[in-house]
Amino acid sequence: MNAPGKDVPKISVSGLHKRFGAHQVLAGIDLEVARGKSLAIIGGSGSGKSVTIKCILGLLKPDSGSIRIDGQETAGLSGTAREQQLAKAGMLFQGAALFDSMTVWQNVAFGLIQAHRMPPVLAREKALAAMTKVGLEEKIADMNPAELSGGMQKRVGLARAIAPEPEILFFDEPTTGLDPIMAGIINELIIERVRELGATALTITHDMKSARRVADSIAMIYQGRIIWCGPAADVDHSGNPYVEQFIMAKSEGPIVLDVLRA
């Protein structure tokens, strides 16, 4: 396969629709992330952020629309072709989603052993190197994830995501549930590791401090559509009443919260 041109966006989504029963969650998402750039999607609870990222990763099947990675359509991929696309990506989950039946190093090395067929001894070395990069000491390598604090688990999740040196990194609410200091540390780690890998990053968050810190550009999702997208530096003077209400955390404004769903 030919290498994609420089102008081809790393991630390109257009007309993405997804419905659960009678509830239309995504109503035509359009977004692009250029190679090596970082985009944060902001939006309230239930606005469709997680569903968008899960559709891009192939964890959910969209009802319609196009998802292209390196210009290649991935929305209908299955089996080996999908696994090859997934091998390009790493994901940090909101709750870290560490495998509790494995030790810390086995968690970090999992993608190296399973997807990249690396021998366990070599994978352990790589896992320990990835752990060092996120500020984890080697002495916790043989501990179980349940023995770690929330912040440490996030770091292990980040180490697992970066260990296979992916081309794309997805971050699902990376700072949720962390104290401000640990949230700041995780933000810095994300920036450093994404920069070092030269990876393309897509973050979903409702933490504006985190979005401003980790992203080159920000997109706001509301009622299943991207209603504003622009450079992170412009988000404070977007001129969009929805964005203004969201970033200033006002209860009054055009955004109507679905209290029953929240």
Partner: peptide, 8 residues
């Protein structure tokens, strides 16, 4: 979901 994203 994490298993799937790790191409497993």
């Amino acid at each position: 979901d994490a298993l799937t994203t790790l191409a497993t």
